[in-house]
């Protein structure tokens, strides 16, 4: 299969993730959308690694997974904290800081 299809797929995933961030209200879902974008990038890396014929992209993908995991830890901590304070996981709820 042509590896460029994976690139296109990754672009779609990235787009879906970005759209998810923009349209979803639940913080967890938004966060998952971000993760989707990261994974889209991962897919692209791997696909490009295949196309370019070197390992760099795959190595990157591993690192990104680790980083994403760390991000999950931090992100969930923050979201949970917000949820506990506000009894809501809506990302539009915390809106004290503006203008």
């Amino acid at each position: 299969m042509n590896p460029s299809n994976y690139v296109i797929l990754s672009a779609l995933l990235f787009g879906i993730g970005a759209l998810g961030v923009l349209v979803r209200r639940n913080a967890i879902v938004v966060f998952m959308s971000v993760e989707l974008m990261l994974n889209a990038a991962n897919l692209a890396f791997v696909a490009f690694a295949r196309m370019n014929g070197n390992l760099d992209g795959q190595v990157v993908a591993f690192f990104v997974m680790v980083v994403a995991a760390a991000e999950v830890v931090v992100g969930l901590a923050i979201i949970v904290q917000i949820f506990r304070s506000r009894r809501s996981a809506s990302i539009d709820e915390p809106n004290l800081l503006k203008y």
Binding site: A18, V21, L22, V30, I91, D92, P94, N95, L97, K98
Partner: peptide
């Protein structure tokens, strides 16, 4: 211009996009 700094994360994300 201030109202465009609406405080909504999603609107910020939109302007980033």
């Amino acid at each position: 211009l201030r109202p465009y700094q609406s405080g909504f994360i999603r609107s910020y994300a939109l302007s980033m996009v």
